[in-house]
Nucleic acid binder design. Structure first.
Lengths: 204, 204, 204, 204
DNA sequence: CATGAATGAGAGTTCATTCAT
DNA sequence: GATGAATGAACTCTCATTCAT
């Protein structure tokens, strides 16, 4: 995913790449993908403009690298957020809280990815695949609940999952990107209540 | 919302503005807000580039005009989609179907608005206000149902409304912008089922 | 050969294109193809740098246009230089004089074309084709002389023509590009003598 | 001609210089003087880019060194090509064959020198001097033939020499640089025939 | 009013050359 | 000496906007 620019070999090179990456993320978050200027990234990293091209072929490659780093961080939850022993509701609640925390940490970048996906086919596809993967994962857990007689059997598990996943991600978006102020725990409570009700899961 | 440029008075002027507006929408949808070039809009409208400035002060004003026209079309549902006589479920179903139809008609433009909102404060605010207004309207109907004993009284009506509205709009986005293929009626069915369940509304 | 940039429609546009073309030729002749800067061409024409791109897509297209104009001028001899009524020697002499005059008028440009041909495949091919066409034309007149018993029949007409054409063109190059000072009539005399002798043409 | 950079003293230094020289020749031949990048030369030689400057002050000095090496090779014919005992025709034939062989071995470099001479005064002068020296040498042998009554006394020896030398060198150029396919012996035969005829040298 | 050529600030990118390690 | 990252001047090309015709 890194492209044709070769990896730096020296310690100094590795550090420079790191600082350019951090600067790029900062500038992308502040200005969006298209308005972000290579110059500003270099200024933010404190390097000359030519240095950028030692590490990245162009803006897109830099964005790829920023995105890859963020994705890794998002998939690798910082805290172990799984509610190991609880019932279905506790698990759903933990998942929702984990998602919201992660989204809040990366909110500005998520906004930019949304922007890029609206224009760039590559990122549009990426976004769709991520949505689908997320929905499929949740669909499996809905199926399990239905099999155990703990969820409404008349629902299509994948479609229900898509819609409920959409509910969570869009709520995160309006809160952390558009900036409607709502406390985290209120969101967790509401989303979990609705999710549980929607599937007709009996109380834990 | 139309801007500082004065309205055209002659019939020819009105037609010119119309054709520029249509061309602008086409180009914005195809290329996104930032990549859209005034030149291309003029080419698409079949006028010289200078003519653009007779009708719009700049690109932003043109986008405002496109957006205003689309919004009017979206708020003014083409078909009377209200289920006048039905029970709560029938009303919710009609609202969902109406929203999805309208979103589908304007999907590409919605994608662009998403893009613009990610960068432009004016449009970010606009989007948030629209979200809020939409959620507030639905919140009132939830309150009404609670008052009639037809919905779970333990839910915060506004927060529930926000989340359920998010579910519908994000589902529309993944379907019509990201392009996951799902039949309209499957969406209507799923969204309505979940919405009704989530509020614990008894069957009609 | 002009490329994708459309022809100017107004009188003013035509004049601008003309002046840019003249400026481009001047700069190409002075600095060579690769060192020539768009900026300098624009300065020489007295226009802003953006104006260049109204008429040419890039430097190569401008060079194509300069070259095409020069070629037309070279193929269309200014003076009618054909010795209508003379014998073979008179004809050869007239042809040599015509070629040298034309080369002298366009010497600097010929130097640049030589330079470009050394790097650019398109122009290398063009140059080869021009050499071949020139040689073939002369080959036909040698064949005619052989048929009339006026030239050494043991020579291969095309090979002889290639070599004699090379003699003339390279002599023109060393004189007018490299700058060895030799009077025109001395060159005409020498080249004609050698050409006539080489083919063993009897005196007129 | 080697430049200001001092000669390497160690064995390793000498090898390094050698490999850079070979790499430089390769890159100059492939890309031409101006497009040749120091980076590519270093890559081809397998050294870091800074190392180049240990051996050469800049690109021009490297080209000088490549050129000097090639010139030595060209003046020092690999095979003894002199026809010691033959008559005038045999000598001319041997000289032509030797020239063509040498040109063929160094064709790509000759193309680059042509390119450089078109722009760089230093190389333009060098080229003119080489042409002149070559022509002068041949002029002396023409004078000798005239003195012995073996060549047309009405020709100016220097002018005739210039033209005939031009014939040979330009024929070599169109064949080995522009790439018109003609067998070596056909060229030798034709050039020798024409040269001999042109001077009216009697058959051996 | 319409036209379309002209403008010029500003962005991206290249690469010879330097220099700390 | 060798390395390879850093530099930054220099250049090309874009396009919103203006304005003479």
């Amino acid at each position: 995913m890194a492209g044709k620019t070769q990896e730096p070999s020296t310690r100094r090179g590795i550090e420079r790449r790191e600082s350019l990456l951090a600067a790029a993320r900062k500038v992308f978050e502040r200005d969006g993908y298209i308005a972000a200027r290579i110059t500003d990234i270099c200024d933010a990293a404190g390097v000359a403009s030519g240095t950028f091209y030692t590490y990245f072929a162009d803006k897109e490659e830099a964005f790829d690298a920023v995105f890859a780093a963020a994705e890794e961080e998002m998939l690798h939850p910082h805290l172990s957020e799984q509610a190991a022993g609880g019932g279905p509701r506790a698990k759903i609640e933990a998942a929702n809280r984990g998602y919201l925390l992660s989204y809040r940490r990366n909110a500005k970048l998520m906004a930019v990815i949304n922007q890029v996906a609206a224009v760039n086919d590559h990122y549009r596809d990426l976004m769709r695949k991520r949505s689908e993967a997320f929905a499929r994962r949740n669909a499996r857990s809905i199926e399990r609940l239905q099999a155990e007689g703990l969820a409404d059997p008349s629902l299509d598990p994948y479609q229900a999952s898509r819609a409920l996943s959409a509910m969570v991600s869009r709520t995160a978006f309006t809160t952390y990107v558009l900036g409607e102020q709502v406390p985290l725990e209120v969101l967790v409570r509401t989303l979990t209540d609705l999710w549980v009700n929607a599937l007709r899961i009996p109380p834990d």
